[in-house]
Design a protein around this nucleic acid. Structure first.
Lengths: 342, 342
DNA sequence: ATACTTCTTGAAAGCGGTTTCAAGAAGAGT
DNA sequence: ACTCTTCTTGAAACCGCTTTCAAGAAGTAT
């Protein structure tokens, strides 16, 4: 309604055909420089903005991608991970001239329904999927719909699926090795068995211990679901086992672990060292500040969108790509390293 | 591409014209029940889904609404407020058959640019705007574009603007009155002067004190920006003044305040009582659990979308509506009430 | 010059719906 | 039985842009 200008009007003003205006708009070759300039002048003078909808209809592309977040409410609201990721993806979409639509669901079943609706509507060019569960149920649905998609976080059935992930094995390895190198031997871990990130971090943990010839004591492995509460509960369990150090699978769970330790009268790092994972704001705010494995969330989000944009334009590549982002250890006070060296 | 079915094909199968199929699709009257059923049968048998884009082009409506979040990264990542709100709006959009697009910006200037892009693209039917600043700059831009919009949180220039907000004055009033009724006299507050929510809560605070005949001591007012850190800093300032109680403008800032108190060796609620605002998860997780004013974030988000949907369909109403959601006090341990009564 | 290519360009045919318009069918009133 | 309304319905125009196709213009090789 605000936009009375159509391509037809511009064509008239520039004294060419609609087709030529369209060519200029889409930067096609085969337009004489002289004509191209004239059209561009008219466009900028009038402030003409092509109608996207019409464009989409004619070109069979919407430039809208969806971000599907399927995770428990607990997790979405208490761990800054999802906000951080969402923000990165939002920015990435803007950079790629894509509109980002957001779909949030709390359970796997709800996620499937949401997805069904999205796919049926057929408005989206592609999807970025991220879930706190293994989410394989989504994959067949997506593949059937033949819509381009990229996962964030490796799905457990990853064959043929494009995904972007952090190097979680390395993350668990770095954290654990760091603790081991500081001389700790009884190193516990609080991980998650809900998704592959948790599995991978445990694998890194095991590898690090094995490499150092430290026997793995299954009683030193506890599980949480990324919430502060679960970290608290898991730590309380572990305390019985008298660990010297603990690698916690997320900053938020580490906050819970710290609370459990404080209540038990244990000092960090003097009585027990803590290293966590993610390096989100809580890590710095914690008392003591957490030594943690930094995960490049912003880069991950951006890469996912870029990969998706590329698939949308060029078609799926074979084989599917698995993009793994490097992680690195950020040393703060909770591991006791500063204390030892200082 | 997956969808080879067109309205034309359905028309052929049902042995009617495209126009009639369209009428059935849009639930228009003047179609014989018998014909309507036949068409519906064909539609459900084939699983036909009308092409949205085409629909939009023809009907000049996109069914896409935007959510513009303009707030500092600090705030978006550290306060569950925005995730909670986003989730509610996402759900509300789904309920109203609207697609939600997300736009995040960190600064007011960036927000204006984002908005400019959105408006120029002309793809959206309406916008929900929420900002941590007073954000009035957006309003003229929106009004010029003649796009329907609803604010969440009262903009300072609210005339003629539809908005949904919590009853912040009441929030400040309830919190402060509660503390006063428990016998505290030197009641401090940590508020924000960045947005109207903060202003309103302070107003409620002042009113409550005035009503009880408690003199207002300007030194007992400190300011924060909704981050944990700012709550910590503000509390440290206030400690000098020896308050008996403090009303903190958000749960997250209260967490910071609690830390400052703990470090100062003050016990909550024995040495100083704390009441906060929002009742988001941190309030329960805090130690001690926070007495806080519950703000119906989910309802607010939902109402905003519904209001927007209504404006999109029926046009702007005059005068603009201001929807204020009630708040209520949730009593937990941090105010000392339980202790007194138990 | 002549015959081919290669460029440029506009006309027109979509894209898949919605909406207008007119006409035939059915119902109402006298 | 006849006229005037009100229902139903299909044909066709239209939404605003992209893309195909064909033709005229320009450039090149003989």
């Amino acid at each position: 309604m605000s936009n009375k200008l159509t391509i037809q009007r511009i064509a008239e003003l520039a004294d060419v055909s609609k087709a030529t205006v369209s060519r200029v708009l889409n930067e096609y070759p085969h337009v004489r420089p002289h004509v191209r300039e004239k059209v561009q002048r008219v466009i900028s003078e009038t402030g003409y903005q092509p109608n996207n909808i019409a464009r989409l209809l004619a070109s069979d592309r919407s430039s809208i991608i969806g971000l599907v977040i399927s995770a428990s409410a607990q997790m979405i609201f208490n761990d800054p991970y999802f906000p951080a990721l969402t923000e990165a993806i939002s920015g990435g979409a803007a950079d790629n001239n894509l509109i980002l639509s957001l779909f949030v669901s709390y359970t796997e079943k709800q996620g499937r329904d949401t997805l069904k609706g999205i796919l049926a509507a057929g408005l989206l060019d592609g999807l970025v999927i991220t879930a706190d569960h293994k989410g394989d149920a989504f994959i067949s649905q997506l593949q059937e719909a033949e819509i381009p998609f990229v996962f964030i976080g490796r799905p457990s059935a990853a064959a043929g699926v494009n995904y972007v992930d952090a190097d979680n094995v390395k993350g668990g390895y770095l954290a654990t090795s760091h603790l081991a190198s500081l001389g700790y031997r009884r190193i516990a871990t609080i991980a998650s068995d809900q998704n592959t990130a948790g599995d991978d971090r445990i694998m890194g943990y095991r590898t690090a211990l094995r490499e150092r010839g430290i026997a793995i004591e299954e009683g030193l492995l506890a599980y949480g679901d990324y919430t502060l509460e679960s970290g608290y509960a898991a730590m309380n369990e572990l305390i019985q086992r008298g660990p010297e150090a603990v690698f916690v699978g997320s900053d938020t769970m580490a906050l819970g672990a710290l609370r459990a330790l404080r209540e038990a009268g244990l000092r960090v790092p003097e009585d027990i060292a803590v290293v966590s994972h993610d390096d989100l704001p809580p890590a710095i705010q914690a008392d003591p500040p957490l030594t943690t494995v930094r995960q490049p969330i912003a880069a991950t989000g951006k890469m996912a969108v870029e990969k998706l944009a590329q698939i949308i334009i060029n078609g799926q590549d074979h084989p599917a790509q698995h993009l793994i982002n490097p992680v690195r250890l950020i040393v703060r006070a909770s591991c006791g390293a500063a204390q030892l060296s200082g």
